[in-house]
Write a protein that binds this DNA or RNA. Structure first.
Lengths: 340, 340
DNA sequence: TTCAGGTCCGAAAACGTTTGCGTGTTGAAA
DNA sequence: TTTCAACACGCAAACGTTTTCGGACCTGAA
């Protein structure tokens, strides 16, 4: 077991000073050609690599960005991470991932921990609990200390920083309009309770699309799922008494549950009922029939967030502060669960 | 914007020395009660938190563990991360995630980067390219420098370290035996090419199960998918000419593709053909019919890996070196795609 | 008055870097 | 022979900690 090589050891070995070694390795003109060659050869031979921690301490920057998400076993979030990772890597940054598990306390804990020197900035999506509590002091504090923060997906007006979101309303409208265009006359929606912002926004898009096309808005065709664990049953009962021919589900899971329920009731998708989902995950692609969905482009969101963050990190200190919020467009992915 | 507080600033503010502040905050008996109270109060008031980087440099340990995986948009890997994160957090460690994207070069790059002080140890699953190349010098080098490494899932004998694997052979046997027990007479397998170790091992389990039950092993019923991108088509053609009544797929995707193909050919699952998968992901649960699978318990694997790593990290220096490989048991999850 | 012993605190080294500046040596010009 | 630039290199500070060691001061007893 051979421990890591340091400048000091090279210096001792070659009988020069530490600074000479450092300068030689950086090809400084201060050092004689001969000495430089000798040092470089030695360093290469023994595979010297500078210690990141020491560099971080010296430079007061770590070249790593922290990303805190509510959960990781979730297709959308993994695509976001993937997007972040990709541009971070291109720009020479590392990514450190922490999970809040939708808990406020863990979000605060992780943020505190990483803020003490471990990362240069944050990309994060708020925990559900945090949004309920409406307590964002941990974020504002970190921002006050000069750390850039980028919020994505689950964002909130109270925090002043860069943001990356999708336009849920427009996305939902696209979905419903597609149903209308393909001939659906009676369109229902399976959504979530309103305090989940995406549920609220997507429901709004649904209503707007109907109104703009002079379809009546029937409250009876709007299902708001309270308990995710019991969604399967709720959806089944809802559909039993609604003779819709089009259905917009605000996530993949609901869409799949709906199709299952419909099938059990002897209704075919898409012949009898067209179904459209939100979030383009594994399920949508592989399900039979494959699901027409509104894609959120998590990858692109992650990439945008990383760009925003790194821009802030590398901006000259004299540039003026300004916060952008970029909206990444959703797009409709047509598959088999809707008519053509 | 108020920058982070340091010991030095507290010292200056309170007109004592840096060491006094440090000791006071650690409640050292060397410091007078009065001074201690004053310093602690000040520190609390201004929310002093020690700088992690400085601590890392001093202690020569970072309290973070690196995890390098081939891809993150993949249910199994996210469950592993989740498991690692959970026990890491319990033990006061951070997790930094890097992706190799199945590329050898990126694996080396990430490893090199993190090995230079950023992490205390690694948990990793080998990139596909790495396994093809059979080049593990980057790992042995890191291990030689004294960094603990834990390999999981895609492991390899050439690297001497702790390992966490599942028993693919036994898992596969369980699957095939279940098919046999539920009355299947002619059982096929959809696997991957042999250099992917799980493909090889699961195929072996398939064969062993057949042999132990005195079923003939028919090479013609073994499909090895080369190109993941084209799997759908290959599977369809394979099934067109095989009148199997049982099918074992080495992953979820293959199982789903197979069911789709069978259905297009007018064969019902599970009535005409029972299908069983491997890896218990979203797809298995939500698909119609839901998939009987062999669950890999990624969470448990991650947790085991983290325990192994942290044990190594915190072991007394005089303890003898020894490498374990823990096998986490698979379990059969019965659902609708097989007969009862 | 001296000194042992206790209490409270500060100086300094160390972790591994980078970098401004000082210093010694060389050679050539005066 | 003296002087001075150019060159090559080393010293030391700095980043923010922790920790060892020793110093200063005070008390009380000899």
């Amino acid at each position: 077991m051979r421990p890591k090589l340091t400048l000091k050891q090279i210096a001792r070995e070659l009988d020069v000073s530490i600074s000479t070694v450092s300068k030689a390795l950086k090809d400084s003109p201060e050092i004689g050609e001969e000495t430089k060659q000798k040092i470089k050869a030695f360093a290469k031979l023994y595979n010297y690599k500078p210690n990141n921690i020491a560099l971080s301490l010296k430079n007061r920057k770590t070249k790593t960005i922290g990303i805190i998400i509510p959960e990781i076993v979730h297709y959308f979030f993994t695509t976001v991470i993937s997007g972040v990772e990709q541009v971070a890597n291109e720009k020479g940054y590392n990514v450190i991932v922490c999970l809040s598990n939708n808990s406020f306390d863990r979000e605060v804990l992780n943020l505190d921990l990483l803020a003490n020197g471990s990362t240069d900035g944050f990309i994060l999506s708020l925990a559900k609990e945090t949004m309920q509590k409406e307590d964002y002091h941990h974020l504002t504090e970190v921002i006050n200390q000069g750390m850039p923060v980028v919020l994505f997906d689950r964002v909130v007006d109270e925090v002043h920083c860069d943001k990356v979101i999708i336009d849920d309303i427009i996305g939902a409208k696209k979905a419903v309009e597609h149903l209308i265009e393909t001939g659906c006359k009676k369109i229902g929606i399976i959504s979530t309770v309103d305090y989940v912002s995406v549920g609220k926004l997507r429901t709004r898009g649904y209503i707007e699309a109907l109104e703009e096309n002079n379809y009546p808005v029937d409250e009876d065709l709007i299902l708001k799922i309270e308990d995710m664990g019991n969604s399967e049953k709720e959806i089944g009962e809802f559909l039993k008494t609604r003779d819709v021919d089009g259905l917009f589900a605000v996530n993949e899971q609901f869409a799949v549950s709906a199709i299952g329920a419909l099938r059990r009731q002897g209704r075919n998708v898409p012949e009898d009922v067209s179904v459209i989902g939100f979030t383009d995950g594994e399920l949508s692609k592989s399900f039979i029939p494959s699901l027409t969905t509104v894609s959120q482009h998590g990858n692109r969101m992650g990439a945008e967030a990383a760009h925003l963050l790194i821009d802030k990190l590398e901006r000259k200190p004299d540039e003026v502060e300004s916060y952008k919020t970029v909206i990444v467009e959703t797009s409709l992915v047509r598959r088999e669960s809707t008519k053509n």
